[in-house]
Design a protein around this nucleic acid. Sequence first.
DNA 1: GTCTATAATGCGATAGAC
DNA 2: GTCTATCGCATTATAGAC
Lengths: 205, 205
Amino acid sequence: MTQPEMMRRKPRGPYFKTEQKRREILDAALEVFAVAGYRSGSLRSVAQRVGMSEAGLLHHFHNKTALLAAALERRDDQTRKRFDFDGLRGRELVTALIELVEYNASVPGVVELFTVLSAEATHPEHPAHEYFRERYSNLRQTLIDTFAELQADGELRQGVDPAAAARGVIALMDGLQVQWLYRDDELDMAADLRRYFDSLLNTPL
Amino acid sequence: MTQPEMMRRKPRGPYFKTEQKRREILDAALEVFAVAGYRSGSLRSVAQRVGMSEAGLLHHFHNKTALLAAALERRDDQTRKRFDFDGLRGRELVTALIELVEYNASVPGVVELFTVLSAEATHPEHPAHEYFRERYSNLRQTLIDTFAELQADGELRQGVDPAAAARGVIALMDGLQVQWLYRDDELDMAADLRRYFDSLLNTPL
DNA sequence: GTCTATAATGCGATAGAC
DNA sequence: GTCTATCGCATTATAGAC
C-alpha cells in the first residue's frame, strides 16, 4: 500500500479533515479568549496552540470576529448536547439549572470564558454584544415563565415576584462565578444557587 | 503685572499643579480602563483624553500597571469620601450598602470599570488580581460579621447561614451590574438588592 | 514637566507561492 | 489547505532636547 493511498480521505463526509481542523481551531480559540478575553486574545496564540500559522488559521475564519462568533456557537452546541432545557418546565428546569452549574464547576475554562467575555461585551461596540444581550434576554424570559408557572401552582413563596426572581437567579449565577474564579475559599456554586431557589420556593428542592 | 508673575505657583502646596495633572490623568485612565479593560485600554487613549503625549504621561506614572494601581486607589478614595462603612454595623451597614448601589446607578462608568476589571483580573497574572482578591475578601468578611451579629440579635431568618448570605449579597451585586450594563430592561439594582436582604431578615428594611 | 524621536515588539490582515 | 513574506498600524517604553 502506497503512502498517498493511506492518506486519502476517509469516507465520513466530503470535508472531514477540514471540519476536524476547524473544530481544533475553535477549541483553541475558546481557551485563548477565556484567559485573555476577546480583545487581548490574539490570533497568534490561537494559531500557536493549534500548531499552524496565522495565515493558515485565517483561511478557515476570515477574521477575528468571525472566529469569536464561531467559537461561541461551538460552545453552545456542546452545552446543548449535554443539557436540553427546551423540554423542561417548573421544578424540572430549576434542578436542571443547578446541574448545569454543578457541571460548570468541572470546566473552569468555560466559566472563565463567559465571565470575562460577558463583562467585556458589555460595551455596545463589542462583537459579542448582541450575542450576550440575546442570551441574557432568553434565559431571563425562560426563568420568568418558569417562576410564573410555579406561582400559578402555588409553589412560589408569598411576595416573590417572578421577574425579580429571574433577574436574581441570573445575577447570582454570574456573581458566584466571579468569586469562584478568585478561589478565595471553597465556594460551591451549585449549593449556593440551590439555597437561593429554596428561599424562593415553598417546598425545598 | 508681568505674565511670568501671574503664572507662578499658587500657595496651595509645593506640587499643586503637578498633583492636579496627576488627578486629571487618573480620571482619564479610569474612563479608558472602564470601557476597554486594562489589557486593551491604551496609554495613548489616556494621553489623548488628557491632551498630552504618551511620554508626558509616563513622566507621572512610570508604567501602565502603576497607572492602573494609582487609578484604582484614587477611585477608592473617592468612594470612601462618600461612604464610610467603618463605623457602621448591623442594619446600618446593610442600608448603607443599598445606598451605595443606588449611587452606583448614577455613575455607569464606575460600574463598568469594576465589572470589566474584576472579570479580567480573575486571571492570576493580571496586575489587579491581588487588589480584587483582597477587595472581595474584605467585603465578604465584613458581611459575614454583620450577618453573624444580626443572627445573634435574632434578626436573621431561620436557616440563613451568615457566610452563604455574604457570598450571595456580593454575587447579586456583581451579577446585577452585568445585566444592568446591558440595559435590556429597566433594572433597579438597589431595589433588587433590598429585596434580597428582606428575604434574609425577619423584619423588612 | 512636556515634547519629539525612536526603539522594539505585537497585532490583524492580505498576496501569492506551493 | 497551508505556508512565507509583508504591510500598516498600535502598543509600551526609553532617550534626550527644550
